[in-house]
Amino acid sequence: GPREVTMKKGDILTLLNSTNKDWWKVEVNDRQGFVPAAYVKKLDSGTGKELVLALYDYQ
């Protein structure tokens, strides 16, 4: 199956793709996968990378 990404509340993840309104593709610890968009919030990183903050645990 697809590689699952797990996250804990407060984690910072790299946002790869947010074109789908329900599932965003993120990368964390060299793993890529989809997380519910409602579970993360975009951060203003000030760099080229888009980052998101995990609002809830997800696994």
Score class of each variant (00 low, 15 high):
G1D: 12
G1S: 12
P2S: 14
R3K: 12
R3D: 13
V5T: 06
V5N: 02
V5F: 15
V5K: 03
T6S: 14
T6W: 13
M7P: 01
M7C: 04
M7T: 01
M7H: 01
M7A: 01
K8C: 09
K8N: 07
K8F: 08
K8S: 07
K9Q: 08
K9G: 04
K9D: 02
G10I: 01
G10N: 05
G10T: 00
G10Y: 04
G10E: 02
D11S: 05
D11M: 11
I12A: 02
I12S: 02
I12L: 07
L13V: 06
L13N: 01
L15T: 01
L15M: 02
L16R: 03
L16W: 02
N17R: 04
N17Q: 09
N17S: 13
S18E: 10
N20T: 05
K21R: 11
K21W: 05
D22A: 08
W23T: 02
W23N: 01
K25R: 09
V26A: 01
V26S: 01
V26Q: 00
V26Y: 00
V26T: 01
V26R: 00
E27Q: 12
E27R: 07
E27N: 04
E27L: 10
E27Y: 06
V28F: 15
V28S: 12
V28W: 10
N29T: 05
R31P: 01
Q32G: 05
Q32D: 06
Q32F: 09
G33Q: 06
G33L: 15
G33R: 05
G33P: 03
G33W: 14
F34R: 03
F34Y: 15
V35W: 01
V35P: 01
V35D: 02
P36W: 04
P36L: 05
A38V: 09
A38K: 13
V40A: 01
K41M: 14
K41S: 09
K41R: 10
K41N: 06
D44Q: 11
D44R: 09
D44C: 14
S45Y: 12
S45Q: 10
S45L: 13
G46L: 11
G46H: 13
G48E: 12
K49C: 08
E50T: 14
E50V: 13
E50K: 10
E50D: 13
L51P: 00
V52K: 00
V52N: 01
L53W: 05
L53Y: 08
A54R: 00
A54Q: 01
Y56H: 12
Y56D: 07
Y56F: 14
Y56S: 08
Y56W: 08
Y56T: 09
D57M: 03
D57I: 04
D57L: 03
Y58G: 01
Y58P: 00
Y58M: 02
Y58V: 02
Q59A: 13
Q59E: 14
Q59I: 13
